[in-house]
Amino acid sequence: MSLDWTFIADSLPLYLDAMWLTVELALIAIIVSMIIGLLFSLVLFYRIKYLSGFIVGYVELSRNTPLLVQLFFLYYGLPKIGLHLSEFDCAAIGLVFLGGSYMTEAFRSGIEAVSSSQLESGLSIGLSKVQLVRYVILPQAFAISIPSLGANAIFLLKETSIVGAIALMDLMNVAKDLIGMSYKTAESLILLVLAYLVLVLPLSLVLTWLERRVRHAEFGG
């Protein structure tokens, strides 16, 4: 089977545009959900009344439902109660709704991994609870959380493949349209796989390297 190289060259710009959309969405999702995760995990750490319960509920809802259904609800369901969002906004909100809970869990387990005697040690030199979090807990928790934060980033990047379902011209829809119009199935699919390989592989390699470094540079009591 020989590939049609002219077709590949012609459709490359379409894939590049779609890759850019993916990167944009993934960046928004990763950054915003990390901020949310950090804030929510702190609320859980401080055991703030009501708010903690709300966050636990949100985490369970978000982690135990598929992104596709979340997106359909945002895109087709919410306009019925007067909330109209663009496709891009829906995709970004859906990804953040999903990622926020994963990042909350990552930060939370990092915070929990800081030993209680470290907290006592901080208290014993008169630190306030805010100073304790700022100078003792977060720096250590963040280092512990790096592998799971990275894994979540990759997860979110891959989950962007679903936004095509709400009519965004993403990589999946570019491939689908090209197959439908040109019947160049093999070329379209190979480009699709390659596009994700180019997007995800570097991040995955960086994460493997980071994981190894974190493990080597373990602090030691």
Partner: peptide, 23 residues
């Protein structure tokens, strides 16, 4: 294993769905 960890599952669904009958 890495093929599934790096390429989204939806892509693999598309690959099989679109390639089996025509190819």
């Amino acid at each position: 294993l890495e093929a599934f960890r790096i390429i989204p599952i939806l892509v693999w669904l598309y690959v099989v769905h679109f390639s089996f009958s025509p190819l």
